[in-house]
Every structure is written in C-alpha cells, then in structure tokens.
Amino acid sequence: MSEWRPTADFTALGRRAQLLCQIRGFFAARGVLEVETPLLASAPVTDPNIEAVSAQSPSGEGLMYLQTSPEFAMKRLVAAGSGPIYQICKAFRRGERGRRHNPEFTMLEWYRPNMSLDALIDEVVAVVALAVGDADVAQMTYQQVFELHCGLNPHAASLDQLKACAMEHLDLSFDSDDRDLWLQLLMSSVVEPALNPKQISIVYDFPETQAALAKIAVNGDGQRVARRFEAFYAGMELANGYDELRDAGELVRRISDDHSRRAAAGQDLPPIDRYLLKAMAKMPECSGVAIGFDRLAMIACGAERIDEVIAFPLESV
C-alpha cells in the first residue's frame, strides 16, 4: 500500500462518522450543550503518568501546551454557569504510541452539575452501548476486582505483598518502593485482562492515592477511597469518571504531591493553571467523565489497532 494513503478504510471512517452523529444526538436529546475550548493551554495536567506536548507560544515568548484533555477549560465553563456540557475534541499526549494509542487522539468528555456518580455511570454505559450494542454490565469496587483476580486487598496489602503478587503473575526485572506503581501494574496487567471482554465492567472506589481530581469518601469498611470509576470493554479501558473535586486548597496540595513525584523521577515540573484554581470556588457539585472516542470506534468496527479507525496516525503525518 502507498505510504500516502490512509491507514483506515472508508467503511471504518464511515462507522466512525456515524458514531459521532449518534453521540451528538444522545446529548442533544438530554439537553447537554456541545462546547469548544482551546487546544493550546498555559498549563497542562501535573499527573506524573501523563506528559503534555509543548509548543512555542504564538507570541514567541515562552511555552504553551497542547491539551491532554479539555478538563480544565470545561470546568471553568461549568464554574461560570454553563450547566451540563460535552465536547468532542483532539487531545495530545507525548510518548503514547501503540496498538491502542496515538499521541494525537479524539476525546469525548462531559460534565454534569448536580448529577450523582451513579447516574453518570448509567450515562457512560448508554454511550458505550452506542458502539457495542446491548451488553451485560457488571459493577465492582477496586477492592473486589483485586480480591477476585489477585487474591489480596489493595487497600490493606503491604508493599512486599504487592510486589510478590506482581512477581507471581509477571516476568519483571525492576524494583520500586512506589506502592501506586505496583497497584497500577497489577491493575493493567493482571486485573484488566481478566475482566469479561463481552460485558461493560465498571470499577469504582479507587485508592485514595489515585484520586487525581476526584473527591475522597469513606467506604463501608471505613477505608478512604477516591470517588472515581473506570469503564472497560473488550479488554480496553474506555472511560475515567470522577465525582469532581471542588476544593482549591486540596487541589494545590495534590499538585504539590505531583510535583514532588515528578522531581523524584527527573520529570519536568509543569506550571499550575491559575485560572482553574480561581474557578474552583464557583464550581457546583458536579460529576464528569472522559472517554477515548477512538477506542469506541475500534469496538464499533471490530478493529484490533487504533490505526484502523483513524485516517493518518503519527507515522503518516
């Protein structure tokens, strides 16, 4: 095949276009406003697991960043009184390339003021069903899936127990004292592949240390957990949703923790989004979620690689 041609065939691109129309119809029927926010931002997320793509400022002075998601700008709209909103847009993450990843990808993200996390999960299931059709749904806590597939309580297990479990299941040649690294490794390499690929799996109540921008709550066992969920289907993570944090002071504390972890790993320390901090004081109670649209398209098309549902991946531009 000529290198100038698209990697996706036109049947896949047609199904992708149809899915976009279905999603817009879904939100229009529910009175959710479609919005657009800038791709360029003065500050990216500080999460050590996400690296933003930097760009020269249009003014020629300093750096800006291509958004890793529209989260910060959309939260400013919600704080300003937009009501429920959604966006379908391009997002960018450095170093992410593989069977399911392209550094430039399409994100579907929406925010629902005064909607419970349970109601948001129902909406996520309905959106995923646009791509997969009717499917069974299973909801489990993070603790339940770890106990089922790893045989340990992720909140109570010691660092040595997490390491031993990982060594039992995986061929590893490194060591670390970062507890979350082992939890994330077990989640991605042991738990996720064990989830039923033919059902929509919702995993919720993540460890407090993996809250990102979600609130913290106390579960029935007295354990502090993140009010956060992820959705999976066909062996892929599709969605990441939060009961959104509204405390600017707590946000600063979490950013400081991110910076400390980044410094220890030799990563760049990105600036803080001062506009988001100011908007926090006006944020209503809100739940929000992001879905990788390209992955939805992969499921809708029965594709094995992201290249089969996007016209021109990284190597083609």
Rank of each mutant, 00 (worst) to 15 (best):
W182A: 05
L296I: 05
R94Q: 14
F312Q: 09
A194I: 08
L117C: 06
A131M: 06
D205F: 00
A166I: 04
C21H: 15
A43E: 12
E285F: 03
C301L: 07
G133V: 08
V45P: 03
R274Y: 13
I200D: 09
Q267H: 08
M236C: 10
A248L: 10
L183S: 05
A164G: 07
K282S: 14
G25P: 04
D175N: 14
R261F: 07
L183K: 01
S59E: 13
I216R: 13
M64E: 12
A263F: 04
L33G: 00
R15S: 11
A80H: 11
D258M: 00
C89P: 09
A73N: 07
V45A: 11
S158N: 06
E230W: 02
R228Q: 00
I299Y: 09
Y204E: 02
S201V: 09
R305D: 14
E3K: 11
W4Y: 13
F92Y: 15
L13E: 06
F229Y: 14
L20T: 12
G60H: 07
A91S: 15
L120F: 02
Q161D: 15
A55C: 14
L277A: 08
G98L: 01
P70F: 11
I255H: 01
I299K: 11
M64G: 00
C150Q: 06
A303E: 08
A52E: 02
A234T: 03
A138D: 09
L108I: 12
G62N: 14
I202K: 00
E96T: 01
Y242R: 08
N219G: 07
W182I: 05
A29E: 15
V127Q: 05
E304A: 15
V203S: 03
C301Y: 05
E168T: 15
V125Q: 01
A126N: 05
F174E: 08
A8F: 10
N102D: 08
G98Q: 10
A263C: 02
I50H: 02
H149G: 03
A129L: 00
A41H: 13
G133Q: 09
L159E: 12
E104L: 05
L159Y: 07
A17G: 11
